[in-house]
């Protein structure tokens, strides 16, 4: 069975995020006040063939740690995509 999984990859806390910081600095000029701690990241959608949702998440977690993220600077978070 196919399970639709979302993998979010974000920079670890404490790792500089020049992209997020630049976005944050641009917001007040556009009239969006009161927005802080902007962190930029990546999002992947995958269809994972597995017997159960848990197994699909486990598979996604493994490939997220091996390939989709660089554990030196990034954290990966996996979740099922609500249809």
């Amino acid at each position: 069975m196919n399970h639709s999984v979302v993998v979010e990859v974000t920079l670890r806390p404490g790792i500089a995020d020049p992209e997020g910081a630049t976005i944050e600095r641009a917001l007040p000029a556009l009239g969006f006040a009161g927005v802080a701690n902007v962190r930029a990241g990546k999002l992947f959608r995958l269809d994972v063939e597995a017997a159960s949702a848990e197994e699909a998440l486990e598979k996604a977690r493994a490939l997220a740690e091996r390939l989709l993220s660089n554990p030196v600077i990034e954290d990966a978070h996996v979740r099922l995509r609500s249809s």
Partner: peptide, 9 residues
């Protein structure tokens, strides 16, 4: 270590 985007983007 790792190489990130340049500070000034």
């Amino acid at each position: 270590g790792a190489l990130q985007k340049n500070r000034g983007l």
